[in-house]
Design a protein around this nucleic acid. Structure first.
Lengths: 232, 232, 232, 232
DNA sequence: GATGAATGAGAATTCATTCAT
DNA sequence: CATGAATGAATTCTCATTCAT
């Protein structure tokens, strides 16, 4: 009886063995996705590659999609960790362009590492509007960014930070994914990063004010407003 | 015992009846997609809604996906027609921002008209790398844009026009689709268009030079270079 | 939406249950073939009769025809076992006519046991030129026969043993099948066997020399030539 | 509504146009069978190749299988004409071996001309036990043969002429078909004919008596018994 | 008579999920 | 806990046949 959706939450692995089994399943899924394509990622095949039986999968995941959910979660965590790293205190002194470059570069590495996975995650995202999951990720990133902006005083051109974050996120994500899947001629990796960085800089940062402030020796008090965002 | 797969190219409707049947099938598909979601778009359901039998579908489409291909083609045509209209001679005098706004606005209407369809088209695009189809669409749009740019002399900031077109296309497409499907709070329709227009303007157009030229009374000879693209 | 064709090699039953399931499927197929005719042998009906679900069939057979292939293999094995028995060492002293009679008689029993099956196997043989499968069977039988001939010193009239084996095989097979399916008046079972035996004797064996040798007290050294075949 | 079997006998073409249409359909069927294989011989494809519409086929044939029936009839007629020719009065003086060779040779030409057709006819023969059709053909051939034998006085070894005719027919048919479809190495066309002729001669003709009679100057009165058949 | 669009029952095949061992 | 054989609903696609034009 396939595809019956039940919400009985599966056991959270509480033992070491469980943890490694879950990881094996997730890794197997990614491997299958990368090497054999989305069509091959059946529960049976995943179990095979993971070295367990189908039954075992259902010990840890309530249904097939839960595997993908977990994978998405994992990718979110990685992206978040990346952002946290890029926006960490140690980088407060970097220029906005440097910071953005680091972020885009980092994200690109995430995508390059497993394009097949991201392809499927994107498909799943389209298939089932799991807004909440994405939402929470968004919120965390935005919080991170806001914090960083406040700390560095980077002058932001956008009024509506939420909208800007959404737009920026979609642009980066879509462009990377598409370039990875289509690999269009004349769009080498560096070009891609350069274009995206430039796009983000011009879209997000008020470069005029940035230079002024730089010249000014950072005279402005960046933390004086919760978020220094304005258009003009 | 039907088993063998033969990819007989399907009949092009030669009678008036056939034409309308094809349209009925396509429309039914869109309708199902919009009202019942991607999962409901089975050949049986489509036939049902179209008021024909399954067999009839296969008179005109070699396999289920061919319906989606046709639908994509149709949307491409519409988008192309839109662009052609926006970039038509009558609009040569419009400002770049006005032109871009018109384009984005128009595309948005296309997406709003059938978000479910575009969702599925996006999914299909991810599933099967049909680069060629997209490619030909891209090329035609780019040709259109190049022509327009050359005619109006809009100063373009990007060096690599192909890359820029690719990035711009992905940004607009992804953002629209996502905003339609997720309808995130605080991102109303006008906001979306505004953000995208601004993004495109800043990414594509050399606004400094644009203003200079405007002040200059268009002294520059725009057609003097094949494509007036430069960064700075 | 199952669509993609993947020819995953099916599992070899590793548990006792699997073995008996495979047998159940094969037996059910034969039963359906015999009782309901070739047209009734759909996967669904076979599963029904076998007391399993369709899915189970596909655990062990990659596609419908694979069932028939397996059945053919099984019949080949049986025929081979029969021949091995007939041509065994214990029968070296039997006269050629006795040996041929035993072979034909035995084959007839195989056909009589499931004429419907052999009908379908013949049809399949015509439909898809699976030369290799037949070839390997042929070769094994021919090897068997050559060996026996060499051991008994039966004088063979044919020069071209391969051609003769082919012709003989086709004659026996076709005649039996046709007589079973058409059951023509005046061709009772014994008549059929008699006719075939006589046909084979006269076609294959050099009876003149046979008698001479018999009179001679088997003075000839039969194994002196690899195969004592000659015309005249 | 496929495969509904009705027995409304279609119109016999009474006009010239009808005749040629029927021929076109039959020829198209053979052509498709030969060039595209049994699987391609759908009514639609046949109509296409014949240059008519499907509807037209049903004007002359009550159902698909009727086309094959007609084709079988046509082949039967050809075979019969061949036999009639071979066994004609002009050939009374030929030796039995010459006559048989001519017959086998002629049949082979029939098979070689359209092996694909004969393959399908054989399959159909297996599928639907249309004993009567075959029967009437058999009877006519046998009558022909009996007549010839009586006229020439060829001494026949078989007691049961009907059984012998059946066996001989099956042997020739099966061997030819199989050799055509499998084209086994080492069985060239002449070999095949030689083997079959020898097989038939030894199976059917009493060669000892034949030579005796020849030496005797045909002293025996061949017509003295209705059929001069005996086993020794 | 001819046409060919429409029909729809029916066939093969897939794969998420369960559960007895 | 793990296993993997069994399940069966659901899906795609075919093709002989009909009948309105």
């Amino acid at each position: 009886m396939p595809r019956r959706k039940r919400s009985s939450p599966r056991k959270q692995p509480q033992q070491a063995r469980g943890k490694s089994t879950v990881r094996a399943i997730l890794d197997a899924t990614v491997q299958v996705l990368e090497r054999e394509g989305p069509g091959a990622a059946t529960t049976t095949r995943i179990a095979e590659v993971a070295g367990v039986s189908v039954g075992t999968i259902y010990q840890y995941f309530s249904h097939r999609d839960a595997i993908l959910d977990a994978l998405q979660e994992r990718e979110f965590e990685r992206a978040l960790a990346l952002m946290q790293n890029v926006l960490s205190v140690g980088n407060l002194s970097k220029s906005p362009r440097e910071t953005i470059t680091a972020a885009v570069q980092g994200l690109r590495e995430l995508y390059v590492a497993s394009p097949g996975l991201h392809r499927v995650l994107a498909m799943e995202g389209l298939r089932s509007n799991k807004a909440d999951r994405l939402q929470s990720f968004d919120l965390r990133v935005i919080a991170l960014v806001r914090h960083f902006l406040a700390a560095t005083g980077t002058p932001i051109r956008r009024k509506n930070i939420d909208a800007a974050a959404f737009v920026a996120f979609q642009c980066v994500r879509a462009t990377m994914l598409a370039s990875l899947l289509e690999s269009p001629a004349g769009l080498e990796d560096e070009t891609l990063v350069d274009e995206l960085v430039d796009l983000l800089m011009r879209y997000l940062v008020d470069e005029k004010r940035l230079e002024a402030e730089k010249a000014n020796g950072h005279a402005k008090k960046p933390a004086s407003r919760k978020v220094s965002a304005s258009v003009e």
